[in-house]
Structure formats: structure tokens, C-alpha cells
Design a protein around this nucleic acid. Structure first.
Lengths: 243, 243
DNA sequence: TGTCTATAGTTGTCTATACATCTATAGACA
DNA sequence: TGTCTATAGATGTATAGACAACTATAGACA
């Protein structure tokens, strides 16, 4: 066995590299049992704590699986390479070098939310809810209809903001720490209202992203983002943390 | 200062909880400098290595920022984690307790791919490509049309598999280590073929997930998954590692 | 044969200690 | 006043040793 590289890295990093190399070149195939910490300690000439740290970190990173009393095993390749990151529309438009414009369609307080809305927030009693509807344009073409319902208990002054200059996202992120997020993506045919606001025809396909956010145990916001199917794709390119 | 909880947790976990509590209740606000490892060591009555491990892990989790020679600081709240995980359809259907069935529509080798396909693979020369089309049923109702094009240089024996019993995903994952994945989600109206295979009407909305995978610098597979918009949502609920 | 038990082997945690490395700063010096 | 330097104090790494907790199994025993 070749042993550790002689770069300037800390020892535990060299041990991690050593293990990753053995996995990468097929020396230790999937589900293979690694040498025990004790064996690695003597064969690599480092202390057990150092080996232990390396293996523990690789376990946290998903490369290994450890069972107390049994041993350390090579994990099957991560299914984690199937993550899609949702970024906010304004950042995204600007990142493409396009010009962004937002049009506020509606900004209101709903004092008496209907049953559907109360259920969405899992409210027991009648609570007011702030409501915004904004259309985002990329180079003058409507791309996204953003509809947000906001818990007025948790988010203050939501209605006083100028969402043509500040992103709703930016305001919410700074005003409310969120503890949990739920996403749902689906496809729907455009309603008459979608068609009017997004300049498409009724029944054209739209991509809908539902997002619910929590602060503590309480639902903070309920959001629906509707994208024009033919003009927009959610996307991501993911590079696994190879080494 | 109250000190550590007296639960059955390991000490370093208690130290982590202690720090998180102090951050959570505003005791240590954003960018506050924490007591030094030495101070925590004496005030909490644990060894420095234990304090160090707790702080190191909290740093990896994004709660703290450490600067050698200077100190440890409370990090600003994490950027909103907006990741969506794509799991494979068979796992998903079974996880819902539904019955899964796969119907292989087509399984063929394309000896002379057309220009669109060659471009998708970024092939310079003419290479054969394997092609599969499978419809996945949940409790007898079609949910997903799975279409895959596979690089025959990288994936062997693709056509010999029985994809009614093995998931295409499972076979590919075991046969080819993948180094990079690209996803694109969009919404399209159903074509006549979609309508026929998925038992919907033409122009009904479908959710389309494009996935391209790389092995090294080479494109290994090009995939299109078409979901019935009204029957399916991609989703995820993400729980930040709070505590 | 079947069941229980002691044990060897493995990982998990914790401590005490040492030295390395980096940063800010007080104080010497020009 | 300005610059350099030694130093205190902070985090980073590494070791040796001890004990705890868990698992599989060989071997004793009924």
C-alpha cells in the first residue's frame, strides 16, 4: 500500500485523501469493509484519533458508513447528485445579464382570510394575512408571476415596502429567520388570469413552484411562483464534491 | 451562565447545544465573539478538545465563523436553503405505499444518431447510442414517461436488461460512476405521443425533467422524464440542521 | 440441538498534553 | 512620529491513553 502523500496538508487531510483515492481507483469497491482504525493507525503511522477524525469527516460527507462495533464501509455513490437549487428570480435574471423589472399587481391586507388560506397557514383562529402579487419581467417579457401570502404576526410592515425596487425575497429574508422550507413543483395549464398577466394564451403550460416557509413551528409565508413553461426552466448543474 | 444540559448526550453534543441555545435566545447576537476555547473549557468543565470539536462541527454546519489567532464568531443566518431533491420514480412510488409497474415501450440501439442527438452528447464522430422508453405506473395509472439515451462507450449491456424488474436508474448507477449531473425542469403541453402513453389529452400540461450525466469529461446519459402535471409534483421539505 | 455467555474486536467519546500557526498589540527603537 | 519586534492569546493539529458501547461469534452448557 502506497501510504500518504507528502504534500503540506494536515495529516487528517492526507488520511482522507488516502481513503478517497482507494475508493476512487476501485481498490476498495462499494460496501467494502475498510481496514479498522487500529490497522490504519499502524499501517499509516498516525495516531488513532487522526484516523478517527478523517473517517468521521468522510462519513459526514457521505463517503463512508460506520457501524459501532462492526466497522467502516464504503458507501454506495451518493444519490445526492440529484439536488436542484432554487434561486430567486431577480438574481437569476440579472445573472443572465438581462434587464429586470417588477410590476406590483396587488398589495393588500386580507383581514378575513377564507378557509383555504386559513388551512394553508394552519391557523386555528382568524388572523389577518398580507398578500402580494408581482409580475417579473426579463427584458420586457413577463417571466414569473409571484404571489405571496405572509403571516402578519411574524412579518411586520410587509405592505409598506416598494417591491419594484426591493425584492420581496430580500425583505422577507432579512426580516424573518426561517427554520424550514417546503417546495412543490408541478405543471398546470394557464388560467385566464395567468394568461392576462403573463401574456400567454389560456391553457398554455405553466411551471408552478409552491413554497411554504416556517419560522419555528409557525408558517411564515405561503408562496406560489408561476413560470411560463415555454420561456423558463428551473435548472442546476451539480458537481459532486470529488475530493 | 446556566451550563450544560444533563441529558444522556455526548459531551460535545451538549456543548453544541449550549452554543446554539446562546445564539438562539439572542444571548450571543450575530457577529458576537464567543468566549475563547480556553474560557469555555473552564466555565463548562470539559476538556479543550471537546470544546474544539463542538465548535469545529458548528463551523462546518455554518453557525460559526472561526479565525485562527483571533477567535470564534456567530455567523449571520444562513442563506435560505432552497434545494430540491430529485429521487427516482420507483423509490418514490414505493415510498408512498403504492404499487409500481413499468412498461417498456421501446429498447433499441441507434447506430446512426441524428444531428440533435449527436449535439446533445457533444459527439464529434458518429457513435451508436442506446435508447429506452419506459412508462411508470402508480397503482395502474401512468405517472411518468422515462426516455433515456445512453452512451454505449460508457455503459455496456444496457439493452440486455429487463427494465420491468430492474430500474434503469439502478442499472446505470451501478454500472457507471457519475461525476456531474445537470437538471432542467420545464413545463410543456402534451404531444400526441405523450397523450397516448400517459393516458391524458393532447395539450394537457406536463412537467418535464431533463437530466444529463457526465462520467469524467464525457456525457454518459441524456434523459427526459415527463410527468403528468395534474398527477404529480416534485417536492421536498427541507429541515435545516437546527440543533 | 439449541440457548446463553464470555470475549475479542471495532467504533465512540473524552482527557491531558504538546506544539504549530496565526493575529493583534504593546513596547522598544530609530 | 513611524517602524519593527517580541509576545500574549487565540485557534489548528497531533498524540497517547483510557474507558464506554456495541456486535458478532466461539465455546460452554443444558
Amino acid at each position: 500500500m502506497p501510504g500518504l502523500s507528502n504534500t503540506a496538508l494536515p495529516l487528517y487531510e492526507k488520511v482522507k485523501d488516502f481513503v478517497l483515492d482507494n475508493i476512487g481507483n476501485g481498490n476498495w469497491p462499494q460496501n467494502e469493509k475498510l481496514p479498522s482504525e487500529h490497522e490504519l493507525t499502524s499501517s499509516l503511522g498516525v495516531s488513532r484519533m487522526t484516523v478517527h477524525r478523517a473517517l468521521r469527516e468522510l462519513t459526514a460527507e457521505g463517503y463512508l458508513r460506520r457501524v459501532q462495533g462492526v466497522g467502516t464501509f464504503v458507501s454506495p455513490p451518493k444519490a445526492q447528485s440529484t439536488l436542484i437549487e432554487i434561486s430567486n428570480i431577480i438574481t437569476e435574471i440579472k445573472a443572465r445579464g438581462s434587464q429586470h423589472r417588477a410590476e406590483v399587481i396587488l398589495l393588500e391586507r386580507i383581514e378575513r382570510p377564507d378557509k383555504m388560506l386559513l388551512d394553508a397557514f394552519e391557523f386555528k383562529k382568524l388572523c389577518p394575512v398580507d398578500h402580494s402579487m408581482v409580475v417579473h419581467y426579463e427584458n420586457g417579457v413577463p417571466v414569473q408571476l409571484e404571489e405571496r401570502y405572509v403571516n402578519t404576526e411574524l412579518v411586520k410592515n410587509y405592505l409598506d415596502q416598494d417591491f419594484t425596487s426591493i425584492g420581496t425575497y430580500d425583505y422577507l429574508q432579512h426580516s424573518t429567520p426561517l427554520t424550514e422550507v417546503e417546495h412543490l413543483i408541478s405543471a398546470i395549464p394557464a388560467t385566464e388570469r395567468h394568461a392576462r398577466l403573463l401574456h400567454i394564451r389560456e391553457r398554455d403550460s405553466c411551471l408552478v413552484l409552491h413554497r411554504k416557509t416556517w419560522t419555528g413551528q409557525t408558517i411564515a409565508t405561503v408562496n406560489t411562483f408561476t413560470y411560463v413553461g415555454s420561456r423558463y426552466s428551473l435548472g442546476s448543474r451539480y458537481l459532486p464534491p470529488k475530493k
